[in-house]
């Protein structure tokens, strides 16, 4: 419900007849590079991945990977080693069929890096607890005409966890294809307005254009409901805040929070979360 209202606020206040032009705006640069961690450990039985990269000047077009690091995740009993993909530098992977357990706490450890080039190796850590599987019973899929466009609307039914401060990340697959393949296309939600209620036809994903994704008339629509830690929700909220860009309505720009600590200041987030999937054959 809150995500729907958020969309409403955005649609209402951005109805200004604004014009946009590209400008040359010189920006300060920083000689110091920082480690950026994009790390998840999920309940899926799969190859778990962690990406390590470096910050760069704002107008640069390349993102430099952090190579040859030692990366592992431990739950205190088991330790999972992440090996760097030889083809995609900076991407570290576990063996197949690795999975996390809801309720367990996972700690990320990174060592052997030298992000600032001072010749000394650094180490970083972060940890997070995996929430329980989210309680989705079924989904509903429809095409809604919104703002004169046919939009795919995916909603769900299910019991929300009665504990406070639950948060969710929703992704959408059409057949096997993950269509919400960047963070801004996913939906995030937290349970303040609906804590502990049975969710009826609660919208999870909006604004996915029908013509772009639903092509063949009959598709398997899958909603991935990720029950995420609340601090990861706040991180994702920061990401959305900053990636939508600044305007006088959006408030002060600010750096995105992080849970990575270590030898030097680092950025990014490591989160452990559970994933529940529900699918439906959709014939528009």
């Amino acid at each position: 419900m809150k995500s729907a209202i958020t969309l409403l606020i955005l649609s209402a206040i951005t109805y200004l007849p604004a014009c946009v032009e590209q400008i040359e705006l010189p920006l300060e640069s920083s000689d110091t590079r920082m480690l950026v961690v994009e790390g998840q450990f999920t309940s899926d039985t799969t190859i778990q991945t962690i990406r390590l990269s470096l910050t760069s000047d704002f107008y640069e077009t390349n993102t430099d990977p952090v190579e040859n690091a030692t990366v592992s995740v431990t739950d205190g009993t088991n330790t999972y080693l992440f090996i760097e993909d030889p083809k995609i530098r900076g991407l570290y992977k576990t063996p197949a069929e690795t999975y996390g357990m809801p309720g367990k706490k996972y700690k990320l450890m990174i060592s052997g890096t030298d992000t600032n080039g001072d010749g000394e190796t650094e180490s970083y850590t972060a940890e997070g607890q995996m929430p329980a599987m989210s309680g989705i019973d079924s989904i509903n899929v429809s095409i809604e005409n919104l703002f004169s466009n046919d939009m795919l609307r995916v909603s769900y039914y299910g019991q929300e966890d009665p504990a406070p401060n639950d948060a969710y990340l929703f992704r959408l697959r059409i057949n096997t294809w993950l269509v919400t393949n960047n963070l801004n296309e996913c939906t995030i939600s937290e349970d303040q307005t609906y804590n502990g209620q049975y969710m009826i036809d609660e919208p999870a994903i909006y604004f996915i254009q029908k013509d772009r994704y639903v092509r063949n008339g009959v598709e398997l629509i899958t909603l991935e409901s990720c029950h995420i830690p609340y601090d990861y929700y706040l991180f994702l909220n920061d990401v959305r805040w900053e990636s939508f860009g600044s305007d006088p309505f959006s408030g002060n720009p600010a750096n995105i929070r992080t849970n990575i600590t270590g030898t030097h200041k680092a950025l990014g987030f490591f989160a452990a979360y559970s994933i529940t999937r529900k699918s439906k054959i959709f014939k528009p």
Binding site: F58, A254, N255
Partner: peptide, 19 residues
């Protein structure tokens, strides 16, 4: 105003780093 002095990439999104 607060302008970026750097950037990072997370989840296929380019994100600003501010002074």
């Amino acid at each position: 105003a607060t302008f970026p002095v750097g950037r990072m990439e997370i989840g296929n999104v380019i994100l600003p780093i501010y002074s």
